[in-house]
């Protein structure tokens, strides 16, 4: 239990997927303009990340490893993630139309998010067990949500402030993201 807790703290803070590992940066600047869309993106990412990692882990260990096809994991994982997102979309549209509408464009966008693929690969590289894979995927997605929501909140604040014209929009967001990454390096050495 303590191991899992440690793994979660490490994945959320010390090895934050966005701010330390720099994976999944497109939504970090793209979807952080308002708190509402950041929350939608976080929920969708959390959902898909856990599901994709779990299935990728099974595909790797029960299909690719026995056939000695480990080198095909990139292709296989992309295939799995893309179909999975499609599947989730089809099911959500039928079962929970309200949720489907709330997630909107963010759900299909996740197909091309490098965080989802990155976590699936990291699970293999770190030789995680099945339970560890689930916990790790959950924790990285929480870390992703944390960074995304903090940035969105900051950007909402200075949307009203006086930002020089050359700095408004993306430049200011990138500098803020850089300062946040600097803050998060303060967690280095925490955990594993």
């Amino acid at each position: 239990m303590a191991d899992y807790l440690l793994m979660m703290v490490t994945a959320i803070f010390a090895n934050n997927i966005l701010l330390i590992r720099f994976l999944g940066l497109c939504p970090f600047v793209g979807v952080s303009t308002s708190l509402e869309s950041a929350l939608g993106m976080s929920a969708a990412a959390l959902f898909v990340n856990v599901l994709a990692s779990t299935i990728s882990w099974n595909v790797y260990n029960f299909l690719l490893v026995p056939l000695e096809l480990e080198y095909l994991r990139t292709v296989a994982f992309i295939l799995v993630i893309a179909s999975l997102v499609q599947l989730v979309e089809i099911i959500l549209q039928k079962v929970a139309p309200a949720l489907y509408r709330a997630l909107g464009i963010y759900l299909p966008l996740i197909t091309t998010n490098c965080m989802i693929f990155g976590v699936a690969v990291l699970n293999i590289q770190e030789k995680h067990s099945f339970m560890e894979t689930i916990v790790y995927a959950f924790a990285t997605a929480i870390g992703f949500s944390l960074a995304l929501i903090i940035l969105a909140a900051i950007r909402e604040r200075f949307a009203l402030g006086k930002v020089p014209a050359m700095m408004s929009g993306f430049p200011a967001a990138l500098i803020t993201a850089g300062l946040m990454a600097l803050c998060f390096t303060g967690f280095m050495g925490l955990g594993q």
């Binding site: 595909v59 299909l63 096809l69 095909l72 296989a76 295939l79 179909s83 599947l87 549209q93 039928k94």
Partner: peptide, 25 residues
């Protein structure tokens, strides 16, 4: 083996997607 495995994976996923599209139409 590689071709077979990927084809199998692709086929499996497309069958699942096809079924889902029918069931959750």
């Amino acid at each position: 083996t590689a071709i077979g495995a990927m084809a199998f994976l692709g086929l499996l996923l497309s069958i699942v997607l096809g079924l889902a599209a029918k069931v959750f139409y």
